[in-house]
Design a protein around this nucleic acid. Structure first.
Lengths: 338, 338
DNA sequence: CTGAAAGCGCTTACAG
DNA sequence: CTGAAAGCGCTTACAG
């Protein structure tokens, strides 16, 4: 039961291998009856084209790189699933690559990856999608790529994102709407463009409702649990502490929750806590987190789709914005008497 | 700056391409001076061999499949990182494949994957590593594979695991040691061989300390948070409730923690809770979880290493057991007066 | 220790 | 609409 080749199929269908190739690649100008005959032979022989032969003859690798340095396993898995789903439809393979922020410089790292694997293109997740250095290195190699949630840097490559500013504004307005005036905010990792946008959304909501912006209510975090815990303690130790804290992601919000627990502050009676991402952690902490859902899978699927298009028509200049959604759970509510 | 080929290197080094090939594949019987000349040319030209040409000529794909159906993103990422690290060293590519348990049958799913991608071999994660059906399908195709944490099914393929029985016994004995006698247990997903082993360890510890095994203290969970929450409530609603609960993984232990919170039972003063895995969640819940660390990355690295060996010498029959480690945190302690 | 030839299974470029 | 030839960049099998 050695592997069937295109020659076997051609023989079985009584055509030339070139015709089999045409059918398999959905090229036009094949007579319907011929196409059917070929497909029947493909099916009968359980034929599957050789990945390496197609790549070698076609002068491309059919390999797409998905690069990330995000510490959140859930985010990475969502993105990976989305990108993989699209790759599979097109018989591309996905190469995952984890970048070490503190390792060698990005350009060398990704450049090396591209050299070694002969990648056809890349999908860049944040914060790599905003790295000038990396983008310059890819441009130099003329490697096509698509960016997920990048900054506003002008570049011809397509991108996908979510309106982080609007999402954060909406969440903040929700907190205002249930009666909060002293609202703390924890900024995400400053290397992520989204971090700044979320902060802007928070500020915009305060302004819109005539609430004074207070610098001491805003702490710098890094999208990880520990930074939420630490910032949470700082905010909750204040004499006039916030009655609500909006953390820029769920991991940090979980940290705030723990800080509150450790201080005997009950949530949401004495403190409302909101996060961002709707990661699994949001449903695992107690109380469950109010947060913002963003469709990471869809963003990645779409980004990969755009990359595949880009490989066909290098002039593609496109971007797609996806919808977010507020998810209200038990960690937020009006203030109640102690 | 078109891609350099083996011909370019051969020309630059003044040898035949076959000699370049020998050097690149670390074949013996190459004069040192020749080897050096070739390596210098490789470096000077920044040459990287073509993945697809090697695969096509070598009659193999250099593709390894990593299949999983585990819902835990962290576990999957750890395993993926370990497998990927080993693959990269050997210029193999890793293909991730998520199996839908409730989708088409496993054999068809993975068989299709193997057919389409022409995989050289697979790494099977639990519970797939114990699937008779899947293993039969792979044997039929003569596809080499290595199993992670499989059951005791007799099979020539190599495997790696951890002594789950001993680990669970040790954790249970730790709970007994700090004074607990009424110890609840939540079983993991029954499709995982480890689930049964951990239950056995729990029972063995009770026996060893002359504590009666009580069926009503043992609940069936599925390795997911919700099942821990539910089982936790059942256990804590009992008139003579356990003073400690050992859940077979951290997600379920987090569920128990939430059940305790909802019932106003304080941990660890009134209830000790222990988990298994040392997943990130263990440090994010409150209080932080006492748990068992198991080196998922190392298991996967080693499994991949064994698969690579297996591809060279098909007779390899080997298995490696890795060490676990108890991690004591704040969720366990002696009972204290209310 | 080294090399010349053939071939892996496709696609490209061209012809009809 | 279809096909014959050449070639992608390596490894295999063989020779010396």
């Amino acid at each position: 039961m050695s592997r069937k080749t295109i020659t076997d199929v051609a023989a079985a269908a009584g055509v030339a291998i070139k015709t089999v190739s045409r059918v398999l690649n959905n090229e036009p100008k094949v007579r319907d009856s011929t196409r059917e005959r070929v497909m029947a032979a493909v099916k009968a022989l359980n034929y599957h084209p050789s990945f390496s032969a197609r790549a070698l003859a076609g002068r491309r690798s059919f390999l797409i790189g998905l690069v990330y340095e995000n510490p959140s396993a859930n985010y990475v898995m969502d993105v990976q699933s989305g990108a993989m789903a699209r790759c599979r439809e097109e018989r591309f393979q996905l190469i995952m690559h984890h970048c070490n922020v503190r390792g060698a410089d990005l350009a060398t790292d990704i450049g090396g990856l591209a050299d070694q694997t002969h990648l056809d293109g890349l999908v860049l997740t944040p914060p790599l999608s905003s790295s000038k250095e990396l983008i310059a290195a890819l441009d130099e190699r003329e490697l096509p790529f698509v960016r997920i949630a990048p900054n506003r840097m002008r570049h011809a490559s397509p991108f996908v994102d979510v309106d982080d500013q609007a999402a954060a504004r909406e969440m903040t307005e929700y907190l205002v709407g249930i009666g909060h005036r002293r609202i703390g905010f924890i900024i995400g990792n400053p290397e992520h463009y989204a971090s700044g946008r979320r902060l802007e959304g928070y500020k915009a909501a305060l302004k819109r409702h005539g609430i004074e912006y207070r610098d001491e209510y805003v702490k710098q975090g890094f999208f990880i649990f520990e930074s939420g815990l630490e910032s949470g303690h700082e905010l909750l130790a204040m004499p006039e502490r916030p009655t609500a804290i909006f953390a820029s992601n769920d991991d940090m919000a979980a940290g705030v929750l723990m800080a509150a627990h450790q201080r005997g502050i009950s949530v949401p009676a004495q403190l409302s806590v909101a996060g961002f991402d709707d990661a699994p952690i949001a449903r695992i902490v107690w109380p469950r987190l109010t947060t913002v859902f963003q469709p990471a899978y869809d963003l990645a699927y779409s980004a990969t789709d755009m990359l595949l298009e880009l490989l066909k028509s290098p002039k593609l200049d496109k971007s797609v914005q996806f919808d977010y959604r507020l998810v209200c759970r038990a960690s937020t509510g009006p203030l109640r008497a102690a």
